[in-house]
Amino acid sequence: MGADLDGFAIVVEGLVKRYGRIVAVNGVSFRVGYGEVFGFLGPNGAGKTTTIHVLATLLRPDGGRVMVAGRDVVRDPVGVRRSIGVVFQDPSLDGELTGYENLYLHGRIYGLRGGLLEERIEEMLRFVELWEHRDRLVKYYSGGMRRRLEIARALLHRPRILFLDEPTLGLDPQTRAHIWDYIRKMHREMGVTVFLTTHYMEEAEALCDRIAIIDHGKIIAEGTPEELKRMAGNDIVYLKIRDVKPGVCGFFEDLALECRELPGGRIALKVGDAVKSLPGILLRARDKGLEVLEASYHRPSLNDVFLLLTGREIREEGPMDMIKAVVMSRRWRR
């Protein structure tokens, strides 16, 4: 291993993992720098959890090399385990113990004890706002509380790298936003490197510095959310104009990268940033005496990227980020 790998929290090269004949992870390579929030985005069964389990030393890879915190997961699993915290997709708390006892147990297994351990437990329980519930048995916790306790537990021993496997799976939208806040706060305040998996695009976009899109055990795209969305093309502004005449596109030549006239009196303008271009476009339309009946824009989402690369939707729910602005033409005329 060269010195060039030292700066990386995670280095994965050609990772392969099979279950019998099924290849769950098929030659995956990526690197995560210290302090980064890196996400695996992909549909269920894409190989996300398998990858996290290999990285967390719970599964042996069938091929490739995996270094976590500078240590090889096969040759030095204990060294890796010392540097990581893991929040599994399925619950892994002891429901018959209280929240406090779960953290105490964890701390002792990780070699913490005495006053230091008590301080850390209080700090972490306050961090996830469970201090008041510390003496309740975990089996009486709600789903969101359990997830928060798991996060607190995973951070108790101050790992350098935190793995989060679908951190908000099965939680309601409010609780999900709440968990996102904790993850952001934790990353900001503790500077921990985060590797997370998710099949929620919004989650990947909201939390990750960089995202790898994974499908059928292979990474099909990697980059910042902005870079990825650019792959799916530019923003598009749609205008519906009353009594549109052919050649209307000529008015917008300098404002758009491309303009196309659509049936039904609509035109589509390809732009760099729809939100910033829209006022200028509407002003131009007024100057040229065009009556704008409707204005809307479409911004490519990570779902569009996935659609572009695989021909499928990442999940069944429709995209949430199609924002439509309908503007009454009269207001613009005055």
Binding site: L58, S92, Y110, G111
Partner: peptide, 18 residues
């Protein structure tokens, strides 16, 4: 079945001890 085993498996403490 309830997942707690994973918590123990991923810990650095020697398995024989746990």
């Amino acid at each position: 079945q309830f997942g707690f085993l994973k918590e123990v498996l991923v810990a650095p403490a020697p398995r024989w001890a746990t």
